[in-house]
Design a binder for these strands. Sequence first.
DNA 1: CTCGATCCCTGGACGC
DNA 2: TGCGTCCAGGGATCGA
Length: 302
Amino acid sequence: MPELPEVETVARGLQLTVAGRRIVSVTLGKTDFIDDPAALELHLPGRFIERVERFGKFMLLRLSGTQNGAPQTGGPGSSLLVHLGMTGHLSPHSVAEPFPKHTHVRFLLDDGRELRYTDARRFGRMAYLAAESLPAELGRFGADPLEISEQEFSALVKSHKSRIKALLLDQSALRGVGNIYADESLWRAKIHPMRIAAKLSPNESRKLRKALQEILHEAIALRGSSISDFLDVEGRPGEYQRRHRAYGREAKPCYRCKTPIRRAIVAGRSSYFCPKCQLAPKSAKRAAKRRKRVTPRHRAAS
DNA sequence: CTCGATCCCTGGACGC
DNA sequence: TGCGTCCAGGGATCGA
């Protein structure tokens, strides 16, 4: 469930609480979600967490410094990549505090605290990446939705024949958008999730990018959505779930037109939309044809 | 290129 | 209360 706003919330929290700390030791539990567990144990002790950034739905803990004063293999620029999956939590705790079930990684820090990774379902991912392997890893992902320009976004939409919902979820096209924010932005932009991306009008494409960016900014301001068990580094839930207009609202009235929100599987995911505001592909096509016949001046007059 | 299906995993909701 | 069953979801992978 952690998507861009939730990951941004955690990354900012970690930047404030653990940036600048040195990792003293690493203790691993279950490791099936870690690319190369031995690499963590080998390369992390002695390194400093220089800063914490978000990259799509990943957190990037930038590492610096040397191991016991020796020249560092992997060198500066190496990073720890963390994906929270569905149920991942990464936050600092006092070592005195007993650690909960499903705590799979513990990083002892030089101030006596411990950075803990807890993940019941282990849908997350963790990997140590040396500086030289970082570009290839990060290069697999598409543009940041908050940074993409209007031109880039419309080009992206135009070049994909998949459903718009599938495109929004495609991390190689756009990094960081998940099911919640895809549905919320489609609702705000009044676009049906099953529409073919390439068939959106230029105006729809503009509206979608705007809606997506507004929603992501609003959600970040409210520290994300806590629908199951998302918590920030201080253990506080987010508040954006209160603003959801489509996601999780099956059969509830649309905030714009009171029509019951519908749920359908699109791109393999539960998708929530208003069947009246968000016209299905065929109806949208007819509506577009009607608009084409009527000149803008006529429309203004009627 | 794009699709759906399947798997991974556990907790929570629900029915009986 | 205690089962069994279904569902949630991101991403990898595979065959159509």
